[in-house]
Design a protein around this nucleic acid. Structure first.
Lengths: 186, 186
DNA sequence: TCTGGATACCTCGCCTCCGAGGTATCGCGG
DNA sequence: CCGCGATACCTCGGAGGCGAGGTATCCAGA
């Protein structure tokens, strides 16, 4: 997850760890800050896996910086993760937002639409926070004002996202029609 | 976090591990499923800490069940966590929803309102996913349709929640006025 | 001159989580 | 009668996150 975001940011620009840290802080940090002790080992893992290379640029500003560059295998790995995200990356809001942040890099309207469709499918499968036996409880059934709030907020959120998803999937379809030769589709 | 949810569910009813597993699956499971290998060690930790006790009820249905009961120290711990949640529990959507799910148990309108106010404060402090240097980028500045989507969804979500928070904080204030003797307040 | 804060990086140990596996019991369908 | 699925519980190893600590440099302000 973190590694995914690192690859994503490096796909846009060469960065050093500290700058990466700041961008990550903006993207997910106000939600869940990333500790140094998490970031630097993650960079090391990516380096070991051959997804990034590290070049020391001696003291441009203050201390020497280790500039990170995404390798070709690194970019391939990023695209693989974007094309076929894990289930948790679809369902977990934070992870899903990371996917969205870099989905543009996938550069294939059909594949992008396919990812959005997975999220659409997830949001349209019925699910409830609370059950009375087997019966799902909706906001109207619940007495507790806080649980009511949860359900109301969740409802509006998912409605908004569903609208956006449907709209965007359609737009991606149109873009696909223009770029491709007309073919028979399922 | 998981332990917090366990305490919360046990505050409502005596449960065995498997039933707990199902309730947790409903509350957070569609977002991020909880593995057995996570749940049972967590129960053990709570037992060791003296927050829950385990009684074996021999084979009512199938296999023997280990019924879990919240102890007094367990309930105190739950209330402590509700009254004074960690920062991450305020900022992380998933964790925040867990707090909301059990905030009713706090049974003190002023303390409940204080928790909601922390969330309110978090949501009203300016934050952005992306920056151009130091300048935060809003949906209108962004070209990428996916990032636009993120920003739009986040905006609607937070607006909805802010409305609910303000409304609910006010209602809690009124309830407090009725139950308390009139005193000078800051 | 000294301190604090920003920049920039790193290590270590602890804890938690996860997945993969295992162990039972019972009921139902084939 | 045999396997499957549900119920119910558990262990273990590996991976990853976190906090606390450390190491430098440089600049601004007291």
């Amino acid at each position: 997850m973190l590694e995914f975001a690192i690859l994503g940011f490096l796909a846009d620009a060469r960065l050093h760890g500290y700058e990466l840290r700041n961008r990550l802080a903006a993207l997910t940090g106000h939600i869940r800050p990333i500790a140094d002790g998490t970031l630097y080992p993650a960079i090391k893992r990516l380096e070991k896996a051959g997804f990034v290379t590290k070049d020391l640029e001696p003291g441009i500003v203050f201390a020497p910086r280790h500039m990170l560059t995404l390798t070709d295998t690194g970019r391939a790995e990023l695209l693989r993760l974007l094309r076929d995200p894990k289930d948790v990356s679809i369902t977990d809001e934070n992870q899903w937002f990371c996917v969205l942040a870099f989905l543009r890099l996938l550069d294939d309207p059909a594949a992008q639409a396919a990812v959005l469709k997975r999220r659409l499918e997830f949001l349209t499968t019925p699910a409830s926070f609370f059950y009375d036996g087997d019966r799902p409880l909706s906001a109207e059934d619940v007495d507790d004002p806080f649980r009511r709030g949860m359900l109301e907020i969740a409802r509006v959120t998912s409605r908004t996202e569903l609208e956006w998803l449907r709209r965007t999937i359609e737009e991606l379809g149109e873009r696909e029609d223009k770029s491709d030769q007309p073919t028979v589709r399922d």
